[in-house]
Design a protein around this nucleic acid. Structure first.
Lengths: 235, 235
DNA sequence: CAGTGGTCTAGACCACGGC
DNA sequence: CCGTGGTCTAGACCACTGG
């Protein structure tokens, strides 16, 4: 973990542990510099990271103040390597509905930059928070990148597996949110009705070398999902 | 406009004008430094800004590459000072449905950090893209911050007015997206049916001195709205 | 191992806020 | 006017990529 990330984490924990609230003033930049024995730029980077996470605000000429916009259980749209983290206070579980190797459909092929002759792992999971269905995730992993995948791996965090066991590095992702209506099957899984609102997050994930390796659609239970929208500062 | 912003703009226009595509390689960092006569850190800041906007990717040890995830007409959830910019290729118009001074409701009072005895400008607008209804915006402006508001101002960009005429500076905002079902009135305005999906963006805007001055709910036409989700890099 | 991006620092100077 | 953040630079050193 990098210095500026450690410092950010430290400051975040400090806010948490002292249960600071919206509007509370934090120490001056200079004090952070002295306390963490870091350069001014490093501290600013840590603070800007936290600012983009929405937990503080740096007011020019005045000071640094705490913000607390989020409630528990919001899905953070900005840090989308799975939402496990955001629900860390809750019990997350999932049921594996399907896992098999398929040829890519047109849609998948287009997004993974392959042909329909290429093979993908198709994984379908129903994810629960506190026993309530949260979302249906249909995910396509390139077999040429992830040769082996089984039920055991798919039931846990697939991303963690990629990182830890295959030594693959995540690069970036494209993400879109579209809203439509549930079909019969989706409604049944989410314990809703056909035609009910269907928020769907469409993701394409790329490795650090810019190879797309995963394309997924996640259909959320509209009543369970409140999305937190990051307000990115132009740092 | 700051140096790093000018440079970012310049690079973005360069990509646009030369119609560079996904995967195209850009000049090396060093070359940008020389070309723009700037420090390395400044160039990195410009590039990181563009990276967070999703239009390029910096690959460690390898180079800087173009990305083009967005199609036209996507609503960018990250830069939410109105979405006028994102639709710049389209004809945007709006119909003023209501403008009046009201006492704050509980919900509004809570979010603007005032009491229900305080007054707000209530503005309701129906916004169109290319004559099609896009969204219904219900907005509450603190009268103590914006003393005067009329139909002429409300029909144009209210935010631009605040900045240019009242010399108010925008600070940050809280934003959430929730999905529910349309009521009868909303459905009629959006030319949809009662019970159809109802994506709604809930915003609280703050001035640079951390005073909340606006609380708004924007209900979108679900078929017209695809939301682009920024993937914020931990810069 | 050469090429290219990433982290971090020290410090000069600027700009905003509030007394 | 002073205190506090913000911009920008030059440069040392690190880390990843790919031939």
């Amino acid at each position: 973990m990098l210095k500026y990330q450690k410092i950010a984490k430290h400051i975040e924990e400090y806010i948490e542990q002292n249960s600071l609230k919206q509007g509370d003033k934090l120490p001056r930049l200079e004090e952070f510099v002295a306390y963490f024995d870091a350069g001014k730029s490093t501290i600013r980077r840590s603070l800007s990271l936290l600012e983009n996470k929405g937990i503080l605000y740096q007011q020019h000429g005045s000071g640094i103040f705490v913000r607390t916009p989020k409630e528990r259980g919001y899905i953070d749209l900005s840090f989308n390597r799975g939402f496990a983290y955001e629900f860390s206070d809750y019990e997350l579980s999932n049921k594996l509905l399907a896992i098999e190797i398929r040829e890519a459909t047109d849609e998948v092929a287009k997004n993974l930059n392959i042909t329909t002759a290429d093979k993908v792992h198709y994984v379908k999971r129903l994810i629960f928070v506190d026993k309530q269905p949260l979302c249906i995730e249909e995910s396509h992993y390139l077999v040429s990148v992830i040769p082996y995948l089984d039920a055991g791996i798919a039931s846990a965090s697939i991303f963690a597996h990629l990182q830890q066991n295959l030594n693959l590095k995540f690069g970036f992702s494209d993400a879109f949110l579209v809203v439509d209506k549930l079909n019969k099957e989706e409604a049944k899984l989410l314990e809703l009705k056909t035609g009910d609102p269907r928020p769907c997050l469409i993701n394409t994930f790329y490795l650090s070398d810019r190879t797309p390796f995963n394309y997924s659609n996640t259909v959320f239970h509209y009543q369970q999902s409140k999305f937190f929208v990051p307000v990115v500062k132009n740092l």
